[in-house]
Write a protein that binds this DNA or RNA. Structure first.
Lengths: 232, 232
DNA sequence: TAGGCGTAAACTGTCAACAATTACGAGGGC
DNA sequence: GCCCTCGTAATTGTTGACAGTTTACGCCTA
């Protein structure tokens, strides 16, 4: 899933892990939508396994906050309301700001060059220029992903790349960008990259946090608009 | 465990949840030490349950990064090296800084008063005055805990109070304070509280981050000292 | 005596059956 | 007609047994 790492340890051979990965993937792909119930017999039959390993897989998903369970009533894909999504974005601002700070001193010149190429490519991208809003799951996430990886803090990388981004992707339909946002986002990306070029940790963290805060504010705008629409 | 919340939903009645809670507690209490192997048959027998629910519980713990599993070889309590602990503390600096920022605008006057009382009590505490190092799991964590709760961001509260603190408590023997640190820490707490009093988000975040960064540096010192000792 | 091989024990992984709880619908009472 | 109750079906919770893998021990050989 857009994860170019080939070296996935491929630690499986046991059905429990396999079921976990397939379930996670199904949730991420929207095959299982937020709030949807996870029937044990159905899923076990679909994956051709017994309910034992399946329950174990569901347990792991529960530990990662991807599903919620109520006793004797089954598990559901987690469903976040607007306030919870905003809470999540606040956390993302904090963590990714720190990641960007670390990257400022640790990122390698070759990676910097690659990021420059990326932004140049974005500038030529019709979807940015025409402001139609493309910044979901495309080049935008790739830019963030690479900076986070450059932080060198393995746990931080895992929290953001594996948990945070995948969770936010779940609600991407509610994270549509406000008009004019893509062009502004690209400009903010350039500010972030300039700070990294300058090897300035304070500026890098500040730039990234501003970027994410603006993005969050644009979501806020959307929500307000939708709320009005619902009243009408 | 020092969690004064009475209203724990007490959602059990199923053995899997019960096993999960008991295992988590056992790990936190040091009954099961980092790196120790989790034998399924032994634990199942000890808790008087079958291996099915137990495996489910272990799965949940794995999802929360409290245990690691290798195929056909069993699960172990997670064990972090010094670098990983430092990585964790960097993340804590980031998240708790944000929590403190949020608390600056959201904390209630009554809670502020309580924090003042707490620090005054710390100042009278013999262990702080004599600089013998008490700041592990005692009043220090309570101070942080209350500020985090005041942030109002439920997910952030969960990440810090449930995941981060409990994980760090696991390695408290390696987080012993440097000489003179308790008194300094108390002073830093006062700076944090002053910023909260002033309702100044920037100052609050900065003060908290400085506090945690200093604490991390003191750990660094300890590690360096121990490394020397090992050479000798 | 040291090293390698083979067997056996212990452990994890998986399954199908059983128990308990919940949800749903039909029937009867008010 | 509406609501409560009871019974049945469906679903989750749990168990003990079976299969596959790893590990450890002892024996044999060089």
């Amino acid at each position: 899933m857009a994860n170019s790492d080939i070296s996935q340890p491929l630690m499986s051979a046991n059905l429990s892990m396999l079921a976990f990965q397939r379930l996670e993937q199904a949730i991420m792909a929207g095959e299982l939508q937020p709030g949807e119930r996870l029937s044990e017999v159905t899923l076990a039959k679909r994956y051709g396994i017994s309910r034992g390993p399946l329950r174990e897989a569901i347990g792991r998903l529960e530990g990662r906050n991807l599903v919620e369970r109520v006793a004797n009533q089954g598990a559901r894909v987690v469903s976040l309301n607007e306030a919870q999504i905003l809470d999540l974005l606040v956390i993302r601002e904090s963590l990714e700001g720190m990641a960007c700070r670390l990257a400022a001193t640790r990122i390698k010149p070759a990676e910097l060059k690659r990021l420059h190429g990326m932004l140049d490519s974005h500038a030529r991208d019709a979807r940015v220029v025409s402001e139609k809003g493309y910044f979901q799951g495309g080049g935008d996430l790739d830019f963030h992903y690479r900076i986070v990886r450059a932080s060198g803090n393995e746990r931080l990388i895992k929290m953001l790349d594996e948990d945070m981004y995948s969770l936010l992707r779940l609600f991407r339909q509610r994270l549509s960008t406000a008009p004019g946002r893509p062009a502004q986002a690209l400009e903010e990306h350039r500010v972030v990259l300039a700070a990294l070029d300058a090897r300035d940790p304070d500026a890098a963290e500040a730039a990234m946090r501003t970027h994410i805060r603006n993005s969050r504010a644009s979501i806020n705008h959307i929500i307000a608009v939708r709320a009005e629409a619902e009243v009408a």
